[in-house]
Design a protein around this nucleic acid. Structure first.
Length: 512
RNA sequence: GGCCCGUUCGUCUAGCUGGCCCAGGACGCUAGGUUUUCAUCCUAGAAAUCAGGGGUUCGAAUCCCCUACGGGCUACCA
């Protein structure tokens, strides 16, 4: 029987999650759900010195906002709890000990000063120091010194780390679901620290142990882990778990738009678009980085964009709901090369989702803007406004700029609009049409249109000539949705008031 | 420096088992149309000598090799 699909997202809480991390979580989630498997959130907080207050909560809230749901995890528990590595601290040591017993690992007593000196020494010779088979016998470790001395050091409480003993020359094969076979010679690997002197395991040990214990079937993570994958394969082998080793898939990285380097947390807002799903305030510096949520993006749009950055369905479909993504997703269709985030296309995606949203949803968001401005209006009125302008904007936050004239009369009149559209006879034409409008009883847009158009036709005026001038008078500028809709919504009295004010103001200006 | 991964329009990408590709779609851009204006929408267009070179083959974006470039890793960080 096939192993049950169980995948995990395993961030370390060293700050906010950026969109690259969200994408990794998303691909894991899509893969899990596609195969009716489990998705697990594990927090990898083995580096106590890099913990950032609030980061874990931020990660959970971000993924929740995105609609990425977990089956097990630090926030909801599960069969394999705990899911925070700091709470699993006690279980790692035995595996490190087991490796020592088997001769696949050893104690090392070198201080960081010792290591630093070595490093400098090698640098001066234009070489790179690597703790490995080539030099481990010259270092201060349990392979180089005798057993009694080792015992003595440990009994004396001398700090030590446990390092893996990488074989001298052995080819190690990693089968990557995205890249195929990657073969590395162990001579290229160094004796990585598995267990630190502070009693915590390093990522390498903790990750392998936890994936095994939590019965993880597939490890889907960023490409930055590819170089250490052979080390992980070796660990599975030495811990006798090679038969249950998960399958690996290393995702291409998200790059900065300028073309160099992977996207990183430090990019904040420097790139001209948010790199974080949610707004983040650095607890130390109080520096604020904007988030997609606060910038007015719909989470569905963000997910859609991210899904298509590195994966494609092979069809021409571009708009995907989460359901559709789950159905369509496959690791085989994940690309190999890194991709840059395109802020312009992101806006377009958001526009698509804005159009798909129900009017009620949009009104609810837009109503907050009105509240802030202390503008009162009936729900139905706001609804009509949103209906009329939503296709003209990418974000709900842009609706105000397209619709303010529904809520307040213009006080000034756009210079350029006047220059382009206001002619000598404009005042006369507007005055005439005002009369027509004010004498119209049925104030629907359709009826107004019919009435005014007929009048213009009869008089052989140009439609554009009249309408442009009228528009300027009513909303103060020359853009916007259908003018008859606007007139109908504002009502007869308001229209009369606005036109009178406009003619006064504009005429005064022209006479001068 | 060493090791690993990658390289198709400005960007995201299709192309995977070689011929249907003098390379298709989307965003953006340009032009035209619709419209009372702007936006939407519709139509059209520009845009990749498939990183470069060498093979293999009747035939290569697709297979192989080399080079260049980009990226990742190279911590008692993840």
């Amino acid at each position: 029987m096939e192993k049950k699909v169980r995948v995990r997202f395993a961030p370390s809480p060293t700050g906010p999650l950026h969109i690259g991390g969200v994408r990794t979580a998303l691909y894991n989630y899509l893969f899990a759900k596609k195969y009716k498997g489990d998705f697990i959130l594990r927090i990898e907080d083995t580096d106590q010195s890099r913990l950032v207050v609030g980061a874990e909560e931020y990660i959970i809230e971000s993924l929740e906002w995105c609609g990425i749901k977990f089956d097990e995890g630090v926030h909801i528990g599960g069969q394999y709890a705990p899911y925070r590595q700091s709470e699993r601290k006690d279980i790692y040591k035995q595996y490190a000990d087991y490796l020592i017993e088997k001769g696949n690992a050893y104690y090392a007593f070198d201080t960081s000063e010792d290591l630093g000196i070595k490093k400098k020494e090698y640098e001066s010779r234009k070489q790179t120091f690597q703790y490995s088979s080539a030099n481990r016998m010259t270092m201060n470790n349990s392979l180089a010194i005798n057993d009694t001395e080792v015992k003595q050091k440990i009994n004396n409480g001398e700090p030590y780390v446990i390092r893996i003993k990488i074989p001298e020359k052995e080819t190690v094969e990693v089968n990557d679901l995205i890249r195929g076979k990657v073969i590395v010679n162990s001579s290229q690997l160094d004796d990585k620290v598995l267990f630190k002197s502070d009693g915590f395991p390093t990522y390498h040990l903790a990750n392998v142990v936890d994936d095994y214990l939590m019965k993880i079937s597939h490890v889907i993570r960023g490409e930055e882990w590819l170089p250490s994958a052979p080390l992980h394969v070796l660990l599975y082998r030495y811990l006798d778990w090679e038969n249950e080793m998960p399958l690996f898939a290393h995702l291409p990285l998200l790059l900065k738009p300028e073309g160099n380097g992977k996207l990183s947390k430090r990019d904040g807002d420097k790139l001209g678009f948010p790199v974080f799903p949610l707004k983040w305030t650095d607890p130390k510096t109080n520096e604020i980085s904007s988030g997609y949520r606060e910038s007015g993006y719909f989470s569905e749009a963000v997910i859609n964009i991210l899904a298509l950055l590195g994966w494609n369905p092979g069809t021409e479909q571009e708009i995907f709901s989460m359901e559709e993504l789950i159905n369509a997703f496959s690791l085989e269709r994940v690309g190999k090369s890194g991709s840059k985030f395109d802020p312009e296309k992101a806006k377009w995606f958001n526009h698509q989702y804005l159009l798909k949203k129900s009017d009620d949803e949009i009104v609810n968001i837009f109503a907050k803007t009105l509240e802030e401005k202390d503008i009162k209006a009936e729900y139905k009125y706001i609804l009509n406004v949103c209906r009329l302008v939503k296709e003209r904007v990418n974000f709900v936050s842009e609706i105000w700029a397209q619709s303010y004239f529904f809520f307040e009369a213009p006080k000034i009149f756009n210079e350029k609009a006047l220059k382009d559209k206001w002619k000598e006879n404009s005042s006369q034409l507007v005055a005439e049409v005002k009369e027509i409008i004010c004498n119209t009883e049925n104030f629907t847009a359709a009826h107004l249109k019919e009435t005014v158009s007929n009048y213009i036709l009869e008089k052989k005026y140009g439609m554009g000539q009249v309408m442009n001038a009228l528009r300027i008078c009513i909303i103060g500028t020359s853009i916007g949705p259908d003018l008859f809709e606007i007139i109908s919504m504002l009502g007869k009295e308001e229209i009369e008031r606005r036109i009178n004010f406009a003619l006064q103001t504009v005429n005064a200006k022209f006479i001068k």
